[in-house]
Design a protein around this nucleic acid. Sequence first.
DNA 1: ATATTTGCCTAACGAACGTTAGTTTATAAG
DNA 2: CTTATAAACTAACGTTCGTTAGGCAAATAT
Lengths: 191, 191
Amino acid sequence: MTERKREILAASQNVLKEKGYAATSVRDIAKALSMEPASLYSHFKSKEDILKITCFDMADKLELGIAEVNDIYFNAEEKLRIAINLHVKVLTQNLNSAMIFIRDWRNLTGKSLDQFILKRNAYEAGFREIVQTGINEGIFNETDKKFAALTILSSVNWIVEWYKEDGSLSSEQIATKLSDFILSGLKKDTV
Amino acid sequence: MTERKREILAASQNVLKEKGYAATSVRDIAKALSMEPASLYSHFKSKEDILKITCFDMADKLELGIAEVNDIYFNAEEKLRIAINLHVKVLTQNLNSAMIFIRDWRNLTGKSLDQFILKRNAYEAGFREIVQTGINEGIFNETDKKFAALTILSSVNWIVEWYKEDGSLSSEQIATKLSDFILSGLKKDTV
DNA sequence: ATATTTGCCTAACGAACGTTAGTTTATAAG
DNA sequence: CTTATAAACTAACGTTCGTTAGGCAAATAT
């Protein structure tokens, strides 16, 4: 990916995050770049191409995080904290992409959509696995694994709706707070 | 609202929830109703009208719930449980509308959008108030109120993404599980 | 110096969009 | 039997959509 392509991609994402993929036209994107709509096609082969690259880039970044966690041995609580921390970091450091990734992936079509759903399911399974580890270790409450994983991801994903880069909380602080919140819901009372 | 209008509205929502508001055309909706696109305009004055009615209906239903909770006296834990229960119930019993309400409200324009945001903020403030009550009563941990309210709403709202009417969990069970999860994150350890 | 590539342009295509105007048909009321 | 109303229709409007074709100028490579 050339420098220029990356530049155009970033600008596109900045427009797409505002109104959403479907409500944003190629002409909107071109306008933000002060160029003609047709010129975008020197860099991307379609509008959906931009969405596809954005969604899969994010998916790859998140995947990398969870792989890292499962590679080295930690106990479940550490694993979950690290996974949440990485997830929050990826989202907050790529806020535009994250909003598109979370909100607009449904607009993918055909094979791209199928492949995306596979990746998404695999990632969720990774979280379920961590929860399962915690149950096995006897430190998490017996709980509906699928339910717990979904609830974790939902609270974590929602931050893209309210996180502001200039806000009072750093990505690190948010991750810690969220981890505390979630872990207190999972951990057995050890007093 | 006539019987027929309600019927068309429900069918419209069933189409809109699939692809989202912006990606769904008036012709898509008409097709699902086996009628001509123009015929829809005998009932609704615009496409956005359908979105507006959907979003504000949901907002009203939720508002009603939180008013109910604050009217009668409960302690904070009870209040939060009831509020979450009502919220989950409204979402799961109006699943199509709920998805549109949560995902597509940004496509509102002008005064409708402004008014919607006001309602939304007021509702969030209601949750913050409950959290504050809990802190005052000394049963919730001192915590970032805004953060807690947002996290609560995020985990609750996300259920529209995975809730299936024929699933193993009833709306009541989901509400209870979510409440347990959230309250264990808020409550002080009472040994 | 010449050839190639890159990045953008102008112009326009056909398709799909939301919406309007005017009309017909079915149902019910006077 | 006539009239009023509701709900659908046909036809088309102007606009916007994503995209393609083809060309031109500047930068880069040979």
